[in-house]
Write a protein that binds this DNA or RNA. Structure first.
Lengths: 196, 196
DNA sequence: CTTCGCCTAACAGCTGTTCGTTTGTATATT
DNA sequence: AATATACAAACGAACAGCTGTTAGGCGAAG
């Protein structure tokens, strides 16, 4: 009987979700099968169901873990004493670091959340909307006090959030510059273009 | 017998590809079934195969149509007499307009090209790589002649290409600014952050 | 009368998931 | 120390449903 290898005292469910996260990122949620996942974990497909309830439950776990991380960071930054530009830069850096440190998780949540089904789908959708509104709020306060160029705030949010996804391509390319350097470049371009 | 509706003298294959483009964008290539597509076209699934050879052929059509459009525009811009910044801005505007005018097509190509299979997969992959290298080349020439801030050129390409994808979110929320205005805002932020 | 395009029926293979059973291991009892 | 008990976790087989695709027939258009 093949047992799920359980390194660094993680729940077996956590091991499954971790493997699923990589698999979902590589092939997409819909294209990755439970039998693929089982093989990646070293077990038969049926055995997975001793630890999880459904394929979608895994996706839920991934999506809301990511959503919570961003919301919590937003709480901290909003409560901080930073300038408006400082707050924006801080959130930008957090997004970049999340892409570095939890690449698969963030990509799956961002690309495959639409495959959630309905209490969770609308919940996630709403959280997404609310999060972007919070970011836009920070920017608008920056515009009001003259720190930030007078540009449509929601547009800035869109640019920032999606620009960070470029790290995906960086993640694959071979001739990469360092992570730290990439972060500085991104901040330089995006934040400098914002200053008034 | 339900016939494929053939408005403005388009090939029936073109009608199918057009419907598929929208469907693939909404649900994702893998999740959209041939029976879904057939229903969208108003026909039975088997009948589609009188006009197309396979599901993947549709995806190929979409992906390479988009790739060609960008390559051709890049030809024009490279051959033009614009300044480096002018060339970059011109390409950026083209990307933005493509997102407005051929939203579904561009999104599908960008998100689902990985589901191509192998002569086409490597071909597309290589074209993508080459295209980004061309853009990076334009930017590097701008850095050399002092027009552009000295930042890693491939990073700028990543930011620009992905930032434009933000239009997806704009596309859904209808309570927003006009297309023209969005374009100007994007150009303002991205290009102004680039000038040295 | 031929050709085209649609239909129904069916295919083999894969999908997520459930079932009942067997195995392995940790603990309690002799 | 050996044995019995209990429970978690693995398994193979099977499910109903969906996947892309093919075959063959039938009606309409040229």
């Amino acid at each position: 009987m093949a047992k799920i290898k359980n390194k660094h005292n993680a729940t077996k469910k956590e091991v499954i979700v971790e493997a699923a996260t990589r698999l979902f990122r590589e092939r997409g949620f819909k294209a990755a099968s439970m039998r693929d996942l089982a093989e990646a974990v070293g077990v038969e497909a049926a055995s997975l169901y001793n630890h999880i309830q459904s394929k979608e439950e895994i996706l839920q776990e991934i999506c809301f873990k990511v959503a919570n991380a961003f919301n919590e960071q937003c709480d901290k930054v909003e409560a901080s004493e930073l300038s408006s530009i400082g707050k924006i830069e801080s959130m930008l850096r957090f997004h970049i670091r999340m892409m570095f440190d939890h690449f698969d998780m963030v990509m799956v949540a961002d690309r495959d959340w639409k495959h959630l089904s309905d209490p969770f789908l609308s919940n996630y959708h709403e959280q997404r909307r609310a999060y972007r509104k919070r970011l836009a709020g920070i920017i608008e306060r920056g515009i009001d006090n003259g720190e930030v160029k007078d540009v449509d705030a929601p547009t800035i949010v869109l640019i920032m959030l999606h620009a960070v996804n470029g790290i995906e391509s960086w993640h694959r390319s071979k001739e990469k510059i360092g992570a730290r350097q990439l972060e500085e470049n991104m901040v330089l371009i995006l934040i400098d273009g914002l200053r008034s």
